[in-house]
Nucleic acid binder design. Sequence first.
DNA 1: ACCTGCCGCGCC
DNA 2: AAAGGGCGCGGCAGGT
Length: 618
Amino acid sequence: MVRIVVGMAGQGRVTLIDPEAAAEAVTVPLAGFPDAVRRLEARRPRWVWSDTRSWYPRLLEAGVRVERCHDLRLCGAILEHSAATVTVRDAGEHPRPAWLPVGPSEPGAAAAVAASSVIARTPLFELDEFDAVSDSVATVGTPGFIDAAADPGIDPIDRADDAVAGSSAEPVAAVIAEHDRQLALLAGSAEPNALRLLLAAESAGALIGAELHAAGLPWDRAVHERVLEDELGPKPKTGWKPARMEELAAQVRTALDAASVNLDSQADLLRALRRAGILVDSTSRWELREQDHPAIEPLLAYKKLARLLSANGWAWLDEWIAGGRFRPDYVPGGTATGRWATSGGGALQLPKIVRSAVVADPGWTLVVADAAQLEPRVLAGMARDEAMAAAGRGLDFYRGIVDAGVVETREQAKYAILGAMYGATTGESGRLVPRLARAYPRAMALVDRAAAEGERGGVVSTLLGRSSPLPPSEWHAAQSRASQPEASPADERRARSVAREWGRFTRNFVVQGSAAEWALCWMAALRTRLAAIAAAGAEAAGPITPASASGLVFERAPHLVYFLHDEIIVHTPQALAADVAAAVEEAAIGAGRLLFGDFPVEFPLDLAVVDSYALADA
DNA sequence: ACCTGCCGCGCC
DNA sequence: AAAGGGCGCGGCAGGT
């Protein structure tokens, strides 16, 4: 595997160097960076750079896509916290350099499942580099290493200016040294194969995050406006509430006999409710729903509309939709578990009601796929729980649990599973968990171990070796107070409560984090397959000229446009939709193999080829 | 005029 | 209907 390291060379110039063939180093002005990368990409190197969010957008703007990279910021963060690197880190021979940015940076009808012979022939993303990760682990580490406290991060604008000004940030020698340091941590780790896969997947995610932003989610403003008018009434003048909300507010005020209550103020509303004899402790929907009073129905309707207006109303459209695209800033690895975050636009919370505005361009269509019940399947695989995996053989895991006689209804199965993964102790969900534990002891033991480790302040890790942060200061404070001789029963209750709370976090961490790893591998494999489909299509269309090369990135080729934890959308020319759908299915099968080898856990998809996102879960 | 914390709710 | 994990965001309240 050739690596090409990217770093600054002073005077605003960029050096691209294969450290093993240093004589061939290229130094170019920043403006020449995309072309230099385009030329060298033919060698299919792994690009090593400080931060994908700083470097890759300018390549994408110039129409340059790269196949793979190593994101030093993201990979450094994983290596710095992983329980698998504790020993090699504690040896102290590989201290983290001060310049390396830490914490998030800012950027700027389904085809049939492909036969497994296809899977075997088509390499996954860099599958050749990895053996399937065969050990299931909820690795227990040693508390006492670096906390996950957020660092301020690096402003991308400043970074770009630095680059132009030729600051000494990231001189290429330092970047090479950092990559070597990370490779040494990897080599010295307890789980080099798993971690190597995680770093590759995380870095692929970084590329995908930038590509998703550059491509944008196709968005039909007119459809969105129609939704708003249907729900809220005509767009009001600035400073006015939509007509439908005013009507509902009037009904609520009449029913409460509170002519001037401000429904947007929790405090004001709560007082008015209680004065009207509705004895609630909050204004939240689940509590109001229980009440029998004529004010409740219009109030809940009002709150629903208020939410739509403030989160995805006309102002949102003006701010976030331009040129028929929604371009949120994705933050790969932005949460403790490795799930992505987004910054701005609420991209991970698109309400179902506005999804009808996600419409494919003319001649194009959307391939929408989500992994059905991903987390319990990942748990079954991690725990190597044969019985649980058997229940998941088929599209509906919950039905499988019922058919196995564990519980009576599908709903019970769902709540039992959620309870097991989230640590429910009360309610119907909590009562069902023991039945699940009898049926699937291995899976239950895995999450119970993770919870126990968290309760005592320890570290747990995902399948591939991403480790949990240490407990917050409240955990330490509560435990130390409870261990004092003069500790009160209240102190002890508080300490147990705080401990159990952190245990629920670590319990969920191993499942959610490992599911995020499956999703990254799925998406990374899909990205590779989409590129192959695009290349084949381009070949059929004739030679690639420099002018058409940028079109190869998004304008002619199927490409990912959305990612939501266990769900993806590919925007594709209609003629390629069947190929894309097959690629999506193959990638899912491949991700399962990569993480769980031959263990018989399945990851079926709900997949739809539709012109509008709203039609996907019909 | 800001900032921060909390609530409520959208998604997984 | 069920209450347990992870997020981001808008709005209000209460502080400076």
